[in-house]
Design a protein around this nucleic acid. Sequence first.
DNA 1: AGCGGGTGTTAGAAGTTCTAACAAAAGAGT
DNA 2: ACTCTTTTGTTAGAACTTCTAACACCCGCT
Lengths: 226, 226
Amino acid sequence: MAEQVRSPRERYRDQNRTEAKQVALEQLAESGPAGISVNAIAKRMGVTGPALYRYFANRDALLSALIVDAFRDLAEAVEGAAERHRKKAPAGRLREIALEWRGWALAQPHRYLLLFGTPVPGYAAPEETYDLADRGMRPLLSVFAELAPADLPPSRTALDRQLTAWRAERAGGEPAPPAALRRGVLAWTRLHGLISLEVQGQFAGTGVDPELLFRAELDALLAEPW
Amino acid sequence: MAEQVRSPRERYRDQNRTEAKQVALEQLAESGPAGISVNAIAKRMGVTGPALYRYFANRDALLSALIVDAFRDLAEAVEGAAERHRKKAPAGRLREIALEWRGWALAQPHRYLLLFGTPVPGYAAPEETYDLADRGMRPLLSVFAELAPADLPPSRTALDRQLTAWRAERAGGEPAPPAALRRGVLAWTRLHGLISLEVQGQFAGTGVDPELLFRAELDALLAEPW
DNA sequence: AGCGGGTGTTAGAAGTTCTAACAAAAGAGT
DNA sequence: ACTCTTTTGTTAGAACTTCTAACACCCGCT
């Protein structure tokens, strides 16, 4: 990972940036995105407000950095799960990946919401986030490519064509069967739906255990006909 | 519906409240939840800032009112679709309900995100919203109750028991088969997942048409084995 | 007709982001 | 070792924000 030789100034700068982000995450957990205040962060770091503007152009830039970090973190968690269970059968690996994903979201709901909650109005996601979001989804697509039976009838629907083109541009390499892509993407949206509702506490008053619902969804995902 | 006889003062008050909410919605559409400013709303209404505090205790109360309105609106849209297509076969009705729901969300993405996006930190949803959220889900559950085959093997999993208890407390009346509840709830979470990702523009750069994906998900929902 | 409650005003406190100008510190070059 | 330059942190302040307090006014109910 080529630990670039950095000048002391750069090291100092990086350290302050990460400290600011860390404090920002604490504030995020305590009082939501609106509670992230440049002034308050600076105060907790022992400096005055405007000092932080040496490190982040503005509040949005700081939020942006948090988002990119979180996307990377989630992607790495999912990739890690896929890697750890690479010897499992695809169905089991799918379960592990999905549970890892949910676990990540539940362990830090505010961060998950930072990624998939209400986007900040003027905010445009940096290009980097697209790649990172894609990385998080890739293990899921792989599993479905493995699960797909070999004798699938070829499908040339508009959706399947779009999906194939999308993957070709994104990942290149060997194309997966369109049906696998379709199911992989839908698996992603399904799990996200469940997780985002759980993270927001929508199941709170119902007496329904979201984990059981999640596992039921996983079962359904695997029981579906091709 | 009892159009309560209201004193002129009450009428005036109501009118101002709804005007404020309307202006707030414009601001929401223009610059997101953070852009809803009490001062700016007042200015657009031709009064000074503090005047609005006669009508809403604080900014959160105003947001709260917007949320309740939106929940009710969405619930009524979904109920309306179910009502309009009550003569259709359940499968067709499911499609109509789901499309109505998606249509509502796409027509006013900011409002959908207000309901299901990042919750405001200190904000606790008023009791009313639970009922309204439930109303929006009910037509979906009904459809699956109709779709469920009569000869379902009885299931006594923990999840099924929780779901049954939840519906009994919520809606009372005749209990639906647990499997239908399970599938209804999962249908809800699936559609929400897809819609919320679409509303946030997550499919924007991919070249994949979210509507096709949505219809594919509907097909999958109906093709699933019981 | 007059009284009282509802409504809108200004003033201001306490907070926010962010810019500008200045001072200090710290690394780099000679 | 001494300067020079760049980075960093400071204070001051502008332009906002929400929200409270005190005052004035006016409408409608009795």
